[in-house]
């Protein structure tokens, strides 16, 4: 399953927002990826996420596959919205 988000953090997915997402994704068993411009990155990998270079205003898709996929997407979505990283679309 997957969810779409629009990134609103002024610095894009660098530094703090990237660290928050990776920290949120890491505890889950599901494979979680961040899709941006047809490139997939492992959301549990700080280097993978930062290397995507997601800029503010762009749209990303987060997909999760595994036993706890629903909970993972819920938690990650909450972090994105509550920490001002982006909004669901």
């Amino acid at each position: 399953m997957e969810k779409k988000f629009k990134i609103t953090a002024p610095e894009g997915l660098h530094a703090r927002p990237a660290a928050l997402l990776v920290t949120a994704a890491t505890p889950f068993l599901a494979d979680i990826t961040l899709d941006f411009k047809e490139k997939k990155a492992n959301l549990k990998s700080i280097m993978g996420v930062m290397a995507q270079g997601v800029s503010p205003g762009s749209t990303i898709v987060i997909s999760a596959q595994g036993s706890d996929e629903a909970e993972a997407l819920q938690v990650i979505g909450d972090v994105i919205v509550s920490k001002g990283i982006g909004e669901e679309c």
């Binding site: 703090r16 660290a19 920290t23 890491t26 492992n42 990998s45 280097m47």
Partner: peptide, 16 residues
């Protein structure tokens, strides 16, 4: 301190 928080994330990076 956050600079080293970033180091920890690199260390724990599954891709690495």
């Amino acid at each position: 301190g956050a600079i080293f928080g970033a180091h920890l994330l690199v260390l724990q990076d599954p891709e690495l």
